[in-house]
Design a protein around this nucleic acid. Structure first.
Lengths: 155, 155
DNA sequence: TGGATTTAGTTTCATCTGCAACCAATGGCA
DNA sequence: TGCCATTGGTTGCAGATGAAACTAAATCCA
């Protein structure tokens, strides 16, 4: 009530550089950008395509819808990524016997090869980033991210 | 050497859901998406526009290039966001007296008003997200993000 | 059965994005 | 001074993106 300081107002409180959503966006862009640049050049692969390959590498036979769920991409993005990968003979699609609408997706031999070569690159980049943290801090980070991911889902 | 288990191979090691760049991307998208949805509806404002307003609110008189540095957006994005904001009479641009190429950017009264109304909304969303964490954890998170942001810059 | 509803996936369209080319003003320097 | 390189900012174009409409197949249920 007796405060003589100039009124704070909302502007004072919101500092973009300290704003968590902004910081997350910058970090994510830097990381994804750096990694994507590496394999975009080496393999002519976009981020959506790379995600599809990553998930099919571990879980062959998923349908496009399942891939969309697993990667949190929307189905249009998956549809297009799959179309490009099929055109490039990196992914094979065969209709499900029971449901002709579904396409069972698998990596071709070529797709497997891409996967086998990119995965180590990606993991190496991740390690490079994580090398800024101690083992303990990495565990803390993962725990925090788990909780933030859940909280963010309910925003 | 005597291992009988099937060979691990790179595929086994890369689990998309545990891959830090992927997790950051999902988290950032969820958070930004949720917040952007709120003010996009309320104020017809895109994320780039909102960032420009946020930074000009605290630091009036920046040039477009300076805004680009402050927001980590590229100059094309800033140029277009500023053009829209000027058209909407939310930002005023006046040529720098010393250098006719530069535009000194400031919020108009209308722009200030938008800023004053959005900032609390944004901060409230941030708080909602952070309410999943203890005060101590928030500090840890920020420290970790600081270091990751630096590490990511040198990727 | 046979329509009405739901689901899988694609296409369309309108918008967004970013690189590269560009224009204009400035600064460097011979 | 006058030319060249640099910088601030915009524009053109080509590819990416997402919502909504659409096609086709499967399921529901009277």
């Amino acid at each position: 009530m007796a405060s003589v300081k100039r009124k704070p107002g909302p502007a004072e409180l919101l500092v973009l550089e300290d704003f968590l959503p902004y910081r997350l966006s910058v970090l994510s862009n830097r990381v994804s950008g750096a990694i994507a640049a590496r394999y975009a050049k080496a393999f002519a692969l976009s981020i959506p395509e790379w995600r599809v390959i990553a998930v099919l590498g571990r879980r062959p036979g998923l349908t496009a819808t399942e891939v969309a769920e697993a990667t949190e991409m929307d189905k249009v993005a998956v549809s297009r990524a799959v179309a490009r990968l099929v055109a490039a003979k990196r992914v094979a699609a065969q209709a499900d016997a029971r449901d002709a609408r579904r396409q069972r997706l698998t990596l071709t031999r070529e797709g497997e090869s891409v996967h086998a070569r990119i995965a180590p690159m990606a993991l190496e980049s991740e390690q490079r980033l994580l090398s800024a943290l101690t083992v303990r801090e990495r565990a803390d980070l993962n725990a925090l991210l788990d909780r933030l991911l859940i909280a963010a889902r309910n925003l």
